[in-house]
Design a protein around this nucleic acid. Structure first.
Lengths: 213, 213
DNA sequence: CACAAAATTAAACAAACGTTTAAATTAAAC
DNA sequence: GTTTAATTTAAACGTTTGTTTAATTTTGTG
């Protein structure tokens, strides 16, 4: 057994679970699949996490931790202009979602199909916290008469929707844009650049108070 | 047994399957669940469709039929301006997705987690066909110097992403907007109106050649 | 080294899964 | 009315599921 596995077998199981949940969905990935690919005994998963559902819960709690802190910092930052903040938000989320596309895939699938109220609540609370911070940034820009009277919630839905769409429907968009030959990593690299340009440009036009009808 | 069930039992099974696939996902909904809620014998599903996977395939083929026709008509229409076409597209898709939110939920989940290449291809082909038509509308507006130099594919991703986000994360956004007390139907009704305003406004600012930097 | 706690294992558990069978019922055709 | 085909049924098929057991090995501590 390699050193890294030995040191943190729990983390290793989590990362394999992330892979398989993203590939096949929560119900589509069996505990046996996870145990086998992680090279651990089947019973170890119950031993470490208690149950399959608790495993998902542990994964979510582990991965969703640090984002909120960054957003809080950004929201209460006084030196950056609202436009700067928007740019930073866009860059941060593109980076985050592209680097954690597997986890993002799990999140978007889980909370619209999970039977467990507990997990649903967990996810919603995490997302609520983050959305509230972003809301502050936009509302602040509106108060300062820099941003126009846009629908704040739906503007956020557009940003996250765009990212989700590009990540979750990679097979579709890579074919539509004729970059299908390349592997998934290159797809995400290319898309990061295009997404930054597109979202910044769109938000600039959409939010700008000068474009208000 | 009621008349409507008798007349088209196959369609009835499809509609129940749509419900349960949307609620629990493909793997989360068992053939027994579907049979029970549809009030048919378990074996009837194999009898009519062959297998669970074929059932999903039949559902997709049944539901995804008529959209392409409408888009083709709109794309080649010569009397409408590009702006009119955008408005019609927005209205059409909001209506469509809100009325078929269950099916839309199945589609967005299936093709990023299904092991079956066949179904994946089926979905991608349907979506590709439709996206190609919409692409024509935007490209046409660009050629006529009405729309600016936007990223066409990502603009579409933003529109569909927004809709998907609002439908699939209903629990999140209804809480964020504090309309949680009302039922799902009222949520979708309220959101239809807001979405129309938001998407039209955003696309107007984003596409307008005058707002080009 | 000895001993207790933690980690790991193979085996078994009952329940649920998708699918098939073969018999029974209904409908259609002549 | 008889015969043939289509439909419907209850029961069983063999797998796979998540979880638990009880025995074994490894680890850390005095």
């Amino acid at each position: 057994m390699s050193l890294t596995e030995k040191v943190d077998k729990r983390a290793h199981i989590l990362s394999i679970a992330e892979e398989l949940f993203a590939e096949n969905g929560f119900d589509g990935a069996s505990v046996r699949d996870i145990a086998q690919r992680a090279n651990v005994n089947l019973a170890m998963i119950s031993y470490y996490f208690g149950s399959k559902e608790k495993l998902l819960e542990a994964l979510i709690e582990d991965r969703a931790g640090y984002t909120t802190g960054i957003l809080v910092e950004l929201a209460k930052n006084q030196t950056l202009t609202p436009w700067d903040k928007i740019d930073r938000l866009v860059e941060f989320y593109i980076e985050k979602i592209m680097n954690n596309y597997r986890f993002h895939c799990i999140m978007s699938q889980t909370y619209c199909q999970t039977r467990s109220t507990e997990i649903k609540e967990l996810i919603i609370n995490i997302k609520m916290r983050n959305l509230e911070e972003i809301k502050k940034v936009i509302s602040d820009g509106q108060k300062k008469k820099i941003f126009g009277k846009v629908d704040v919630e739906l503007t956020m839905a557009s940003v996250f929707g765009t990212l989700t769409q590009v990540v979750n429907s990679a097979a579709l968009y890579s074919r539509l844009m004729k970059i299908e030959e390349s592997d998934d990593a290159t797809y995400r690299k290319k898309m990061s650049t295009r997404l930054k340009t597109h979202l910044k440009q769109m938000l600039r036009a959409h939010l700008d108070i000068k474009n208000e009808e």
